[in-house]
Write a protein that binds this DNA or RNA. Structure first.
Lengths: 192, 192
DNA sequence: TCCTTTGTCTAGCAGTGCTAGCATCAAGCC
DNA sequence: GGCTTGATGCTAGCACTGCTAGACAAAGGA
């Protein structure tokens, strides 16, 4: 029994290694550079080993996305908890969101740009994704304004942040004015 | 001289055929299905012919993106011209933008999600892209509100629309409430 | 008519995600 | 302790990708 447990531990540890390596490689050189060959070489195993852990590359991306969702939810909640008052809270959340996207571009891509085979906005949406949305909803719901559904408001706010994050990252928007754009967004959208 | 002119015409016509075919294929089956082999087969030429018109696949995507930008600018201006008053105009623009994205998902991808090798937000940004932004700016500038730079306001509004468009398209947001989300966005962001 | 130039094609390269089938090594049984 | 068995990871290979070198044919000019 103990032997089997040890093997399971080792297997789980190798799975973490795969994910950490994929993530590191993606952050360093982009997801295009994360090929199964390169990934296998970095973890010092052969390619087929990857397929004994994940169905394919897409599932690896999905797993990294879930990791990212958990971290993002934590970052948003931490920012919200450290701020006093609704306005400061919403500002802090917006900054935390954009900051996360800027600091972890590959993870953000995995979550929202690439196909990780994850279900969104449906019943079988994985828990971390639901929770990341919930983290936004907790603080944004209170500034939705009268007669506006908190969920709908959060969706709009989130979409706006997502737009800023992706357009900035893709150099469609110059990154200098990020602060001013964020401030404008918060001031206009949130009802205090 | 006339012979050369005929050849140039034929060449230009074939280039249009390549772009139209690429776009059609992308809209039908997604950009992943637009391989150089398939594209060549559809236009009934061999692969290398594509490379006598474009440097590579990326440049084909870029060319489709420019086409799309021109069309989007026209769609936005048409919507603006058909509406009376600032509020109706902004609403119409938002709907036109999201409608364009929804009706031409592959073209929208070429413009904003994929790498078409185009420069954005810089001096050597191609004219159609600048003009598409200008089309938004023309009508959005007037509702930026006092003390807010029209360009900055347009960027934020655009980013919000972009977020809605991409998240809806990627099924991150359910498509039913698009109208309500758009209305909320317009009502909050635009200063009348 | 011959030669040159232009245009197009066939064939191939290096790389991709993914998999079938073989070797190896450790666990468990007699 | 020696043998069998099953799990585990490997090598080799498939069908595909974007892209290109070099052969070849068709057209134009002398």
């Amino acid at each position: 029994m103990s032997v089997q447990e040890r093997k399971e531990r080792e297997r789980a540890s190798r799975e973490r290694l795969i994910l950490a390596t994929a993530r590191e490689l993606a952050e360093q050189q982009g997801w295009d550079a994360v090929t199964t060959r390169r990934l296998a070489e970095r973890i010092e195993y052969s390619q087929p080993v990857l397929y004994s852990h994940f169905r394919g590359k897409r599932e690896i991306i999905g797993a990294v996305a879930l990791e990212g969702a958990t971290e993002m939810a934590a970052a948003v909640r931490a920012a919200a908890a450290a701020a006093d008052g609704p306005h400061a809270r919403v500002s802090a959340i917006a900054r935390a969101y954009l900051d996360f996207a800027a600091r972890n571009p590959a993870v953000y891509d995995a979550m929202f740009q690439l196909d990780g085979g994850l279900a969104f906005a449906s019943e079988d949406t994985p828990e971390p994704l639901k929770d990341a949305f919930a983290a936004l909803l907790e603080s944004l719901g209170e500034v939705a304004g009268e007669g506006v559904h908190p969920g709908l408001f959060t969706e709009v706010f989130w979409a706006a942040l997502h737009g800023l994050a992706t357009l900035t990252r893709a150099r469609r928007l110059p990154s200098e004015d990020t602060e001013r754009r964020t401030a404008l967004l918060v001031d206009r959208l949130a009802v205090l």
